[in-house]
Design a protein around this nucleic acid. Structure first.
Length: 502
RNA sequence: GGUCCAUUCGUCUAGUGGUUAGGACGUCAGGUUUUCAUCCUGUUAACAGGGGUUCGAUUCCCCUAUGGACUACCA
């Protein structure tokens, strides 16, 4: 087998969609699995759609995901430059080669003329196709006399270079995921290869670069499948060896129809991009929402691919080891934000408490709380399993940091009895006598007291929790009072009695 | 409209010419937790439809339906 060289070739037209991240991921898995090279090539041949910051966003996204680029703009390599706008000088000669060979031609039709043609065909119920059937009637170097079109060229009249698609050829080709496909060239059009602004289109630049960069496998999104016949024709015209192709199915909306879009995320409250996008119309990112990169890529990797086993949690190395492109599914995968959360929950459970304490301390700092790291570690241990994100720890522990200001009315109605205030006052006097406030100490003392007095456990424990927490939630009550301490506990009981007891 | 592609529980999917069609997320129920959540156990639920081929099709073929992509001097 030849050397495996794959590329991820995004366009810097905005933030990188998670579908794009998945394409990058599969390319990366494939490269690493086969001791190959992963190349990042920026396809910025369309000046009009270029967006400032997008290129950096792409690189930062890959980095966050743990995808290591072997060759690229920052990494260098022997096949550069890796940005197509920096390769501008390369493409023209290949377009000329095609013209010399008779496989491409100059076309002088203006965009306005083509637009008119298209709308006229549309009105007649047809679709205008620039191909062998109409080529000779249009304004190009096929229909015009040589002296005529050369004169236009000399005068500097704007032109594009189009591929001369044969009018009736069956093109057979294979896709690793789709299998064998046959397309007749009669249904294809004379695609523009070289634009009037001096830049190549995707089709030309892509084929030339893949060849020059010795790409062995083209792994890209399904949206490229329809243009694969053209690409095959191009390889043939150049007499170049074909790489192998694999077209990945798309990511679909969680509900309804169609492919996943930013709107779905906005509507349903989940991110569609790996990182926060700060320019123009801003977009949420998985990183900022609190997802761990390894959970994120694990989730993404299993959307449209699976190893055939029942294992679901994979490290990057395990994914690389298990990956095979043949096991990528044929149909689009609907994105499920719930499952994404589940993955993060799993990864958070695997994390060490001291690590989580560090992460949570950053969160608290931003809110003005400064807590000892050891105490935080204890706190994490109490609530870890109930959360999926570090930021959720706060929702589970706010009452550790501040006494309740309100008390859940439902709980009061259900649990607060005539004698509750008296019982809690008695509880205060018991607690005051305990110096060691560990749960191991307070719990038996209080339980013994309840037992000896013949009280109802539920009646006491529920209101105890109510005055300490303010609601019917949270970890073991004795763990809570241990953490907040004797003084604070007694204070809260006293306050609760006076507020609720009226 | 045309071209190409796809179709197993609500979702991600495994799987085979003869299986009780398996797992995960979700849902629901029970248990644990004297709270809530977690957790555990169980439940739920699928081969798009119609024709073939075959002793037998979810599996192979055809048609239909549905969905998707593409149909630019965008990628």
């Amino acid at each position: 087998m030849t050397r495996v060289r794959v590329r991820f070739a995004p366009s810097p037209t905005g933030p990188l969609h998670i579908g794009g991240v998945r394409t990058a991921l599969y390319n990366y898995f494939f490269a690493k699995k086969n001791n190959g090279t992963f190349i990042l090539r920026i396809e910025d041949t369309d000046k009009a759609r270029f967006v400032e910051g997008a290129e950096e966003y792409i690189m930062e996204s890959l980095k966050w995901c743990g995808i290591i680029v072997d060759e690229g703009i920052n990494e260098g390599g022997n096949y550069g430059p890796y940005r197509q706008s920096d390769r501008k000088a390369i493409y023209r000669q290949y377009a000329d080669m095609l013209i010399d060979k008779g496989d491409a031609y100059f076309a002088f039709d203006t965009p306005e003329q083509l637009e008119t043609l298209r709308s006229e065909s549309g009105k007649a119920g047809n679709t205008f196709i620039y191909n062998a059937a109409v080529r000779e009637k249009l304004n190009n170097s096929v229909s015009l006399q040589e002296t005529e079109w050369k004169e236009k060229l000399d005068k500097g009249e704007p032109y594009v270079i189009r591929y001369k698609m044969p009018h009736n050829d069956d093109i057979h080709f294979d896709d690793i995921i789709r299998g064998h496909i046959v397309v007749n060239t009669g249904t294809l059009d004379d695609k523009v290869l070289f634009k009037s602004d001096g830049m190549p289109t995707y089709h030309l630049a892509n084929i030339v670069d893949d060849h020059l960069m010795e790409i062995s496998h083209v792994i890209r999104g399904e949206e490229w499948l329809p243009s694969l016949p053209l690409h095959i024709m191009l390889y043939r015209s150049f007499s170049w060896d074909l790489p192998l192709f694999a077209h990945l199915p798309l990511l679909l909306k969680p509900d309804g129809k169609g492919k996943l879009s930013k709107r779905d995320g906005d509507k349903m409250g989940f991110p569609v991009f790996p990182l926060f996008w700060p320019y123009g119309e801003t977009a949420k990112g998985y990183r900022e929402e609190g997802y761990y990169p390894d959970a994120f890529i694990n989730m993404l990797a299993l959307l449209g691919w699976n190893p055939g086993t029942e294992q679901e949690i994979f490290s990057m190395d395990e994914l690389i080891e298990a990956f095979s492109i043949e096991r990528v599914g044929k149909s689009g995968s609907r994105f499920d934000p719930e499952k994404a959360k589940w993955f993060n929950h799993q990864y958070l459970q695997y994390r060490y408490n001291n690590q989580l304490a560090l992460e949570f301390r950053e969160f608290l700092r931003a809110r003005g709380h400064h807590v000892d790291i050891i105490r935080l570690e204890t706190l994490i241990g109490l609530v870890k399993e109930r959360v999926s994100f570090v930021k959720e720890i706060w929702e589970q522990t706010d009452f550790f940091f501040k006494a309740p200001e309100t008390y859940d009315q439902e709980v009061i109605k259900k649990r607060w009895k005539e004698n509750s205030a008296a019982l809690l006052r008695e509880l205060i006097s018991i607690l005051e006598k305990i110096d060691d406030f560990s749960a191991a100490k307070t719990e038996p003392v209080i339980k013994t007291w309840i037992e000896e007095k013949g009280y109802n456990t539920g009646e006491i424990m529920n209101v105890f929790r109510l005055v300490v927490v303010g609601a019917s939630r949270g970890p073991h009550i004795f763990d809570i009072i241990c953490w907040i301490g004797k003084e604070e506990t007694i204070k809260r009981i006293g306050k609760g009695v006076s507020v609720i007891g009226k």
